[in-house]
Amino acid sequence: MTMTTETTIGREAPPGARWIDVCAYDDLLPERGVCAIIDGVQVAVFRTFDGDLYAVSNLDPFCGAHVISRGILGTRAGAPTVASPMYKQVFDLRTGGCLDDPDVALPTFPIRRSATGDRVEVGLSDEHRE
């Protein structure tokens, strides 16, 4: 799959969301994450091997520490995943759902490349604020 602006915008930002610039696309290493802090909310931002972007909450619900951005990326049965660096639970990056425990999910955030293509923006609505 090649990266297009549409593929990421396809996951709609809810009404009232603001797009917030977090970093340059080139700041993101393929298959590695970074954390952005937006109005006190920690968002884990990932770039997969194919170049797709994903944003989920950086808070690991299993251990209570903000560490999800430091997990290893990969795939499980084709789904893009991140594994918590603490106790290694695996989450689906598309939905935030925990693949090892169906009752648990990470909040997800809309993410896209900027119109110029060189920046990365995360969509944040009021409900995300802590």
């Binding site: 520490a65 560490v67 430091r70 997990g71 290893i72 603490m86």
Partner: peptide, 21 residues
């Protein structure tokens, strides 16, 4: 290079992660 993306967080930060991150 690409090896960086393979490392567990400990190797990636050349330090040992503790319970509070």
């Amino acid at each position: 290079g690409e090896q960086a993306a393979l490392q567990d967080t400990n190797d990636h930060f050349l330090a040992n992660i503790q319970k509070n991150g």
